[in-house]
Amino acid sequence: MKVSRTWIGYGLTAPAFVWLGITVFLPLAVMFYFSFMSRMPMGTAEVTFSLEQYASFFQRDFYRFLTWRSIMLGAQVTFFCVLIGYPAALVLARTVKGRWREAILLLVILPFWSNALIRIFAWTMVLRTDGVIDQVLHLLIPGAPSIGVLYSYPAVVIGLVHSFVPYMILTCYISLQAIDDSLIEAGQSLGGSNLTVFRRIILPLSLPGLLVGVVLIFIPVVGSFMEPRILGGRDGIMLGTVIEDQFTEVFNWPLGAALSFTLLGIVAIILALAYPFLKNRVKVA
């Protein structure tokens, strides 16, 4: 009986293992292999293995510049998400009660499960020259200068913050609402001002949620390509868009693979730094 139980256990996990092996493990391994190729393995031309692709990354300023841009974009978007999302989570967890809290929380999350592409598309309508902001402005102040910011770096930041701020609100809210009220009352009755209570009790206890939010936002933003492409125009060239080009326009897959692995390295460093905080959060069964 004992043996058969073990085999049932193996049998039940086997499909998930095989599936993830084919779609995650093997592809990443093959891409790693690919990133050392000198050219696409097509036709009869000989393919040699070298560090050429990685070398071009480190020799050409262009790629280093792009990587820096992507990291800065990730940092800025994450910063604004904290700035906007944390207070919202604080208000939701501490001030709003009952039905309203559930309703507002649902309203915040609702668009975040709908199509990211469509939400970015929606911003093009608002931000472009002669877009909604411009036209409303001209109705209010005739002759006002146009302030369309579509196809610029700020547009990319606005679109990405809009896409990712619900993550921050959700993760911060979860850790904020778990704080025991009696701790805060104790802080207040011991003479702590609101600021002291926030700084010494609320902020430290909600820090894990904040950090989870930071990681959950930073990683996809560093790897984003669709948002900079649609909203950024010529200012939207990022590491992600260049990787996309290697696979869809230029067909230099080895270079694309090498760039992808560089990006993966950045992600891995971030995950490793955040691991002590994430460990207790991402528990699966």
Partner: peptide, 10 residues
């Protein structure tokens, strides 16, 4: 945890 761009291209 990995950007979908990387998973998709791999």
């Amino acid at each position: 945890a990995v950007p979908w761009l990387i998973l998709a291209t791999s």
